[in-house]
Structures are given as C-alpha cells and as structure tokens.
C-alpha cells in the first residue's frame, strides 16, 4: 500500500505540473500538443547541465541536481518559443505545429545526445546517465498510518512541483494576467478591445507551458528512467493532455485525474510483483494509464467545455 502511494505520487506530480502548463497554453487559446516534445527537450538540457556539472562537484553534491532543474526549465521555455513562433507569428495550424515540434524534438535530442557523447565525453552512447535522485522523509508526519506514505521517500522535485503548482494556480485565478489569459481563450477580440496585447499574453502562456513541461521532463528522467535517452518519449505529454481534458481545463480536477493515472500505474506494478507474474506481464501493466485515459475520455468528453477560441488563429480583422 505504501509503495503504491509513494510510486504513484512520484509519477502523478510531474504529470500534473505538465498538465498545468498545458492548461496555461490552452486557456490562452493555443492548442498545445507539443508538451511531449517540450518535456523531452527540457529533460535533455537539464541532463546535459547535470552531466557537465557532475565533474566539477563531488559525487554526493546536490548542486548538479538543482542545476538540472533550472536548465530543464530554461530549455523547455526556449524550445516552446518555436511553438509560439509557428502558432502566433506564422499562423500555422496549431495541431500540426504541436506534432511537428514533437517529432523534431525526438530527432534533435537523439542526434545531439549521440553527437555530444562522442565529441565532448568521448563515449559512444545514446544516453546521459543521471542516477535516481536522493529521497527525503519528513519526520513525524510520515508516521501517520497509511497517509503517512505521502511524506515518506519523497523526491525533492516533488516539493518543487507542489510549490510551482500553487504559484501557477494563484497566478491563473487571482491575478490580472490570469484573467487576461482566460479571456484570450474565450474571446480574444474582447481582450484586444480592452487594450491588451493578445499575442503577448499567448506568448507568455506558451512559455510557461514550456518551462513547466521541462521541469516535468527532468523529474521523469531523475526518477523513472534514471537517465536521459529517447525512452523519455513514451507519451507522458499526451497523458498530460488527456488529464487536462478530463479535468475540464481547471487545475484542481486535473490533479485528481493525474493521481488516478499515477495510482493505476503503480497499483498495476504492485500487482505484477505480488502475484509473482513473469516480467513480460509488466508490458500489460504499462497500458493501464492509457486504457484508463481512453475509458475516462469516453465517459467525460461529452460534458467538456473547451475554451471557446481554442485552436483558432487570432485574426484582428475577423469578427
């Protein structure tokens, strides 16, 4: 039971922060299927920073870890500018742009990882080895029966994510910028008439989604895969999109759906181990989050209200 909660949380929280990024972008009216690529590029830049910094610090130092977080956010933000450029300036189809960005991210990071490994580190390898991040347990709280597991064996990135999520929620629902952002997704013409630059609001929203996705990407790299390689592209970005659709583009319900995905996954693994099934059965468990997503979408898509101007190119002259 404890393991299910611990593993479930360490998977749900990165998913959640990525979904919040998606909500920012989509609430501002930009369809963002690029989350998958953004988290991959974020994980790549973060991992690169960590590997480069690792030689400068001692083995047990935590500096490379936090450096990786910072650079992952920067990398994700920088790469998201491409999506913003295509969608806002070049008025490309936003769905196509998102998918194109994902494909390019996969190709580019796979190429650069191999290239940098060969030239900078002198090794023929297609991954940056990171190891699993250190864990911490909060004394006292972790002794509560069952629920105490929430405070046990937490990865430091989980705390960063919770903090970032609270800030993101506050900005979205309590500030002027958040209000403009939500209005941009429903009626950009009204926002424009009020004297606010629609393109700028959307640009910032896409950059936020890039930064948060980058944070999610490096978190996955430090927990599930313990390295950066092309194995980071297994559809977490699309899971996050499903989570936010299921959460009806609002932050708190989205947390619920992310937790559901996380516990479906960790619960399945637990079952495979408990019943002593051969390891190939873990392939079936891997499908659980996807199957759950599809089923949930079947039941809830009808009641969904997407932002009204979602996916529409903003054209000043149009009424």
């Amino acid at each position: 039971m404890e393991r299910i909660i611990i593993d479930g949380l360490s998977f749900s929280l990165p998913l959640f922060i990525m979904a919040i990024g998606g909500i920012y972008s989509e609430k501002s009216g930009i369809t963002n299927l690029a989350l998958e690529g953004l988290q991959g590029v974020g994980a790549f830049t973060g991992a690169l920073a960590a590997v480069l910094a690792a030689s400068a610090f001692s083995g047990s130092s935590q500096v490379p870890y936090y450096l990786a977080m910072v650079f992952a956010i920067l990398g994700g933000t920088a790469y998201s500018l491409l999506h913003a450029l295509l969608c806002i300036r070049f008025k490309a189809n936003q769905t196509i742009s998102g998918v194109v960005i994902n494909i390019l991210a996969m190709a580019l990071t796979a190429f650069l990882t191999k290239f940098l490994n060969r030239t900078v580190f002198g090794a023929a390898s297609d991954k940056f080895v990171l190891g699993v991040s250190a864990k911490l347990t909060i004394p006292g709280l972790s002794r509560i029966p069952v629920l105490g597991a929430v405070f046990k064996d937490i990865y430091p990135f989980e705390l960063i994510i919770v903090a970032a999520a609270i800030i993101a929620w506050y900005v979205m629902s309590k500030t002027r910028y958040g209000m403009n952002l939500r209005a941009c997704g429903d009626n950009p013409h009204a926002v424009d008439a009020a004297g606010v630059d629609v393109a700028k609001v959307r640009l910032i929203a896409v950059m936020v989604s890039g930064g948060l996705s980058g944070l999610a990407g490096i978190s996955f790299a430090y927990s599930i895969s313990a390295n950066f390689s092309s194995s980071i592209y297994v559809g977490y970005g699309y899971l996050a999109i499903a989570a936010l659709i299921f959460g009806n583009w609002t932050i708190l319900p989205t947390l619920g759906s992310c937790l559901l995905f996380g516990f479906a996954r960790s619960g399945g693994y637990y079952l495979v181990q408990k019943l002593k099934m051969p390891s190939s059965y873990s392939d079936l468990v891997m499908t659980l989050p996807y199957v759950v997503t599809l089923l949930l979408l079947i039941f809830f898509s009808k009641y969904n209200r997407a932002p009204r101007a979602l996916g529409e190119i903003y054209d000043k002259g149009k009424r």
């Binding site: 559809g235 659709i245 392939d283 996807y290 979408l297 898509s301």
Partner: peptide, 29 residues
C-alpha cells in the same frame, strides 16, 4: 470515438498507439 464521444482524434489515436505497442509486445514476448 470522435463521432460518438467527441474525443480528440489525436489523443485517442496516441492512446491506441501505446496500447497496441505494449499489448503486441506482450504477446510477442
């Protein structure tokens, strides 16, 4: 799924991609 339940075809086809990938990998292995 798109017609009946209004599910975005990109999301559903990606989910089906992964489900097919893992289930078929299970049967092959």
């Amino acid at each position: 799924l798109k017609y009946q339940f209004n599910i975005n075809e990109v999301v559903s086809s990606i989910m089906i991609n992964y489900i097919a990938q893992y289930v078929i990998s299970f049967f092959i292995n």
